[in-house]
C-alpha cells in the first residue's frame, strides 16, 4: 500500500534530530510537525520571520499580527524569536537551518527540483522555495511518486521550470525513500507492501536497486 499523507509525514519525521532548526513547506511537510518524536526538541522556522512556531491558536488567541509563511494564524513557543524577512533569509541562505522539507512537482537524477510553476497553468511564484533549496544542505522532498495518471515524478530530467539546480539528495514518496547521487536515483526503502517492481515501473529516471530493499518502519 502506498503511504498516506500522515505516513509520509511520519517517515520524514524520522529524519529529525534533537536540537534541529527546521523549515517545513506548505502541505505534507507541515504535517511533519505533528510527528516530532517524544522527548525531542526541534524549533520550526517560518520564513516570514518566526523561529519557534507553535500550534494554531485557540479562538481566543487568534492574532492578525502573528502568522506563518502559509498566512495561517499561529502561536509562538517558549524561546521563540521574531525578526525581519532579511534576517529570516540570512538564516536560510547562510545555511543555518538544519533541515528543510518541501514538496515538489518533479525531481530528477541530477538533483534538480521543479516545484513552483506549470507554464500556462499556474502562475503563483516561488515564494521562499528557491532560497530554501539554494541555502540548505539537508533537504528532504516529499511528494507522490507519480501523478494520478501514473506519470513518474522522478525523472531523467525535469520538464518544468526549475526551483533549484543540483540541490536535492533525499526524496520521500508515497512508495519509496530514494537518494540522489552520481546522476542516479538510489532506492533505499519501500513503503510497506509496495513491490520493488512497482517502484521501478513508476520511476522514469535511472534507478539503482539493491538486492534487498527494506520496508519502511513506523
Amino acid at each position: 500500500m502506498s503511504l498516506t499523507r500522515e505516513q509520509l509525514a511520519m517517515r520524514v519525521a524520522q529524519e529529525l534530530q534533537d536540537g534541529y532548526y527546521v523549515n517545513l513547506g506548505i502541505g505534507i511537510p507541515t504535517l511533519v510537525a505533528n510527528y516530532v518524536p517524544q522527548g525531542m526538541d526541534v524549533m520550526l522556522q517560518s520564513e516570514n520571520g518566526l523561529l519557534g512556531m507553535g500550534p494554531f491558536p485557540t479562538e481566543d488567541e487568534v492574532d492578525a499580527d502573528l502568522i506563518n509563511a502559509g498566512k495561517q494564524t499561529v502561536t509562538t513557543i517558549k524561546g521563540s524569536s521574531i525578526f525581519s524577512s532579511a534576517e529570516s533569509f540570512a538564516m536560510i541562505r547562510g545555511g543555518h537551518v538544519d533541515l528543510t522539507v518541501l514538496g515538489a512537482f518533479e525531481v530528477d537524477v541530477m538533483g534538480n527540483i521543479a516545484s513552483y510553476m506549470i507554464p500556462g497553468k499556474l502562475i503563483k511564484g516561488m515564494g521562499g522555495a528557491m532560497d530554501l533549496v539554494a541555502g540548505a544542505d539537508n533537504i528532504i522532498v516529499t511528494m507522490t511518486h507519480a501523478s494520478k495518471h501514473g506519470e513518474s515524478k522522478l525523472l531523467p530530467q525535469c520538464t518544468l521550470p526549475l526551483t533549484g539546480a543540483g540541490c536535492i539528495k533525499k526524496v520521500v514518496t508515497d512508495l519509496a525513500y530514494v537518494e540522489i547521487a552520481e546522476g542516479k536515483f538510489w532506492l533505499k526503502e519501500r513503503a510497506p507492501g509496495v513491490s520493488v517492481d512497482e517502484i521501478i515501473r513508476l520511476t522514469a529516471g535511472e534507478l539503482v536497486v539493491p538486492e534487498v530493499v527494506p520496508e519502511m518502519e513506523f
Binding site: 500550534p55 491558536p57 485557540t58 487568534v62 502568522i67 498566512k71 494564524t73 499561529v74
Partner: peptide, 8 residues
Amino acid sequence: RIEQRTVR
C-alpha cells in the same frame, strides 16, 4: 484582515 484563520 486575516487571510487564513486557522484555530484549534
